[in-house]
């Protein structure tokens, strides 16, 4: 096995466990799920996970299948509305790495897991620490125990 390809980046705190391998997107800006995912274009086929927050660097980016890394969730209490559907329907982010967990973010994932079944990993880990090892588009792996490694 190529040692570099499985380089361990660190071990995050496990809020919601899961094992996933996917490309990562890193932002140093708070993420606002309502501003991102409740625009008219989000309601068109295939548009549910496209970030349409004009004030966020991910504006215009389809976040489906990505591991999102950001400092914290900001903004509205409708945030779980899109999160619940995106996690339940498995057509949203593949996982989340957040520096400072907030109930708004955890709720959507918890409700999907406990009331519907599908879930994604939610890991506490500093965004700037992650950015030392990987850049946008690099594939990383999150293990059940919170280990984050370059895939």
């Amino acid at each position: 096995m190529d040692k570099k390809k499985t380089e361990i980046i660190g071990k995050g705190g496990v809020l919601v466990a899961g094992h996933i391998k996917a490309p990562v997107l890193i932002s140093d800006k708070g993420f606002n799920g309502v501003a991102a995912w409740t625009k008219p274009d989000n309601f068109k086929p295939g548009g549910a996970a496209i970030c349409l927050d004009w004030q966020h660097p991910w504006n215009g980016t389809d976040l489906a299948g990505k591991i999102l890394a950001f400092p914290t969730e900001v903004g509205s209490t409708h945030a779980p509305l899109p999160w619940i559907d995106l996690v339940k329907n498995q057509n949203g982010p593949a996982g989340v790495i957040v520096a400072r967990p907030d109930p708004l973010l955890a709720i959507g994932i918890f409700i999907s897991r406990e009331w519907y079944g599908p879930s994604i990993p939610l890991i506490e880990f500093p965004t700037d620490e992650l950015a030392k090892f990987v850049k946008d588009g690099d594939t990383i792996e999150i293990l059940e125990d919170g280990t984050i490694q370059r895939a």
Binding site: A79, P80, L81, I84, P103, I107, G108
Partner: peptide, 20 residues
Amino acid sequence: VVYMNSMLGARTNIWGVLTD
């Protein structure tokens, strides 16, 4: 949430749909 906490001094964390 921010008005209750700031102006009334009541205490609530921020809760999203359903958890309220």
